[in-house]
Design a protein around this nucleic acid. Structure first.
Lengths: 194, 194
DNA sequence: GTCTATATAAAGATAGAC
DNA sequence: GTCTATCTTTATATAGAC
């Protein structure tokens, strides 16, 4: 598969637009023509960069995951305590959601997963696995350092935290203003403070 | 809008099939022809019962929400303690998820909400509002009775609980086996036991 | 890299017969 | 209530010129 680091300028603009469209409407909710119009080129030019829709979306997910992992490293460099890291982690989701209630790319694709091409599913899966691994480490450290009080395994806390944030982006999108990821994350963290 | 209680036998079979298709692939992931084939009739017959796709999906969501509220009443009749009610509530999500990782109808439609017809969005919104109201009451009761230890408002706990369960159905659908709604719910409940 | 033109299939929806 | 036939639009994708 193509790697996002090898994209030309035009191809990168295509990925930029496709990413937002996926966050808004999902894999089945946008077309090559939507992308073409927003980028300002024609449909066949999109196919030139990404022969199939599966190619395009896989690269979108790949780049999204890579950037997310960069953010995780950034959090590790900026915060020492587990609770601070979790707050910063929730803020990543909040930053996306604050832009017109955009969804996590992989949250949206995860919901649609059953009908997606394998290469896309694989990238989505990798995103969740990487996040769970990172969160598991944070919870284990928090428990060891005494800052967090766990009621079960670090793995289960990681799963719970990720699910709560992904869910926060889905719930209430219908219209009624509800709590966003940052507040949901804060509620959960407050339950685990030692 | 049509009410699900007025559906003919054939129309109800259409709704049955559409419900599962929505859970698997979402609003944009299935077609009238998919429904027609599975029901065993032709496409125009579906249009006879539901002129537009928005009509059909709105009725699916409407019936889904009604049945969910019946389940909530059932839980109230079966369990007195807040913690028990929350476990039973999580089991509702687990029962759906256990069938080929089917999603909550309104979780899926919530993710797609930005591109959906207003009448569908309204039903989805009503589902979330009804669930949050019920959960808020359970948490308030649990705190008053002393069975649950809340770190913030009952409203925030309700939001957190619903988000965690909806998220649990999305995360890990990519392939890696992770925790389902029942386990995520149990992890969260264990954090709140007094 | 981008375009015009085109192929092919599928989508949502309607008309009108039975 | 169901069907065949059809309309119209859109989707993904390709061929080949510039």
């Amino acid at each position: 598969m193509k790697h996002f680091s090898e994209l030309s300028g035009a191809a990168e603009r295509v990925v930029d637009v496709a990413e937002v469209l996926i966050q808004q409407a999902g894999y089945n909710g946008f077309s090559y023509d939507d992308v073409a119009r927003q980028v300002g080129i024609k449909k066949p030019s999109i196919h030139h960069h990404f022969p199939t829709k599966a190619d395009l979306v896989a690269v979108v997910a790949q780049r999204y995951t890579h950037r997310f992992r960069q953010e995780l490293l950034g959090i590790e460099g900026k915060h020492a305590k587990a609770a601070q890291r979790l707050t910063a982690y929730a803020a990543l989701f909040e930053a996306t959601y604050a832009q017109d209630q955009r969804l996590c790319v992989c949250g949206m694709l995860g919901a649609e997963a059953q009908g997606l091409p394998p290469e896309v599913r694989q990238e989505v899966n990798y995103f969740f696995a990487a996040n769970l691994e990172w969160l598991t480490h944070v919870f284990a450290s928090g428990a060891a350092q005494g800052g967090l009080r766990l009621s079960t395994t670090p793995q289960a806390h990681a799963q719970l935290f990720l699910c709560a944030l992904e869910g926060a982006m889905v719930v209430g999108r219908g219209g009624t203003p509800t709590m966003g990821p940052a507040m949901v994350g804060e509620s959960l963290i407050s339950l685990m403070l030692a």
